[in-house]
């Protein structure tokens, strides 16, 4: 390593430049970039991001589609109906990656490196949650293309569709902070994963995601009616123009009335945004405090 020695002396000598403490956004983006590289490198995560959504669209579309009836047009109608639901479910699952990877990072030495750097203290959390947004955008694109291939269509124009996507991303972003908190408190990636599935499966199924929730037994129907998962899905169906895709032989007005059977479902955007705001208001400070506590040891 004699060459190392001579070279070191020639380069480490002078020019001590001004080192400053970082901005939240700048450092957050650096951390997010690192997380995205990691997703590319870890096959499991890459599959989770790309193949799984495709599989879900096909699986739910064609298996549950058979329940809708035997006609081809009935089944393609179901596929159009369930796209908003599968979008919502997948995007919510995406938020759990934050919990999983947060827990994993906390077990690794890289957090110590971060903490001795003059970076913004919340940059790790911001970077982590921003990664989910990027991840979710990729997921939405992959699923949309898959959906278009199997006959799903956007009927109400690009602006409405964009709003539908945006609402999903906003809610999922708030949920990322919830799972960041969970990941920081639980500290074991496997446990986070299992716990997430235990919670998310019922939450995304007791909703109008895959079936018309107005047909559910009364208790489930009420839970579904106030479930934000239902309101995101309802809003997306309205904005994509998929609300009437299920062939029920009823008028549009009747379908409107039947599907929007709670105040929440009648005002899905407002209700979803309220949930988003409340989750962020609670879990952003909670997760930040949990992070500080976790690294202080």
């Amino acid at each position: 390593m004699t060459d190392v020695r001579t070279r070191l002396s020639s380069t480490t000598a002078d020019d001590s430049q001004e080192i400053r403490t970082g901005s939240l956004i700048g450092d957050g983006l650096t951390v997010a970039r690192r997380n995205l590289i990691k997703i590319r490198r870890v096959p499991d995560l890459l599959i989770f991001t790309t193949l799984q959504p495709i599989m879900f669209v096909l699986l739910f579309g064609y298996v549950f589609g058979a329940l809708a009836g035997s006609g081809a047009s009935v089944q393609s109608g179901y596929r159009e109906f369930m796209m908003a639901g599968i979008f919502t479910q997948t995007i919510i699952f995406g938020a759990t990656i934050t919990g999983y990877m947060m827990a994993e990072d906390m077990q690794k030495g890289v957090i110590d490196r971060f903490r001795t750097l003059p970076m913004h203290p919340s940059a790790v959390l911001l970077g982590r949650t921003l990664t989910d947004v990027v991840n979710n955008v990729v997921v939405l694109v992959v699923m949309s293309v898959t959906g278009l291939i199997i006959g799903w269509r956007i009927h109400h124009g690009a602006l409405h569709a964009l709003w539908a996507y945006l609402l999903m991303l906003l809610f999922a972003y708030a949920l990322s902070w919830v799972f960041a908190y969970v990941g920081l408190r639980v500290r074991s990636p496997e446990v986070v994963n299992n716990a997430s599935f235990m919670i998310i499966f019922p939450v995304t199924f007791i909703a109008n995601t895959f079936v018309p929730s107005q047909n559910m037994p009364v208790v489930l129907k009420q839970i579904a009616g106030w479930n934000p998962v239902s309101t995101i899905t309802q809003s997306a169906r309205e904005n994509f123009g998929n609300l009437y895709a299920l062939k029920s032989g009823q008028t549009h007005a009747a379908v409107d009335k039947q599907t929007a059977y709670t105040w929440a479902l009648q005002h899905p955007d407002l209700y979803t945004l309220s949930w988003t705001a409340v989750l962020l208001a609670v879990f952003l400070p909670f997760a930040t405090a949990a992070y500080k506590k976790a690294v202080a040891k």
Binding site: Q17, I19, R20, G22, G26, D27, T30, R33, R34, I37, K38, R41, V42, K108, G109, V110, I111, D112, R113, F114, L117, P118, M119
Partner: peptide, 23 residues
């Protein structure tokens, strides 16, 4: 316990640290 990010390459590790020093 070497605080390197094992999923990142050596180059990416150092570039990330440099960016977090705000170079």
């Amino acid at each position: 316990y070497a605080a390197v990010d094992e999923y990142l390459s050596g180059r990416e590790n150092l570039e990330m640290v440099a960016r977090l020093y705000h170079l």
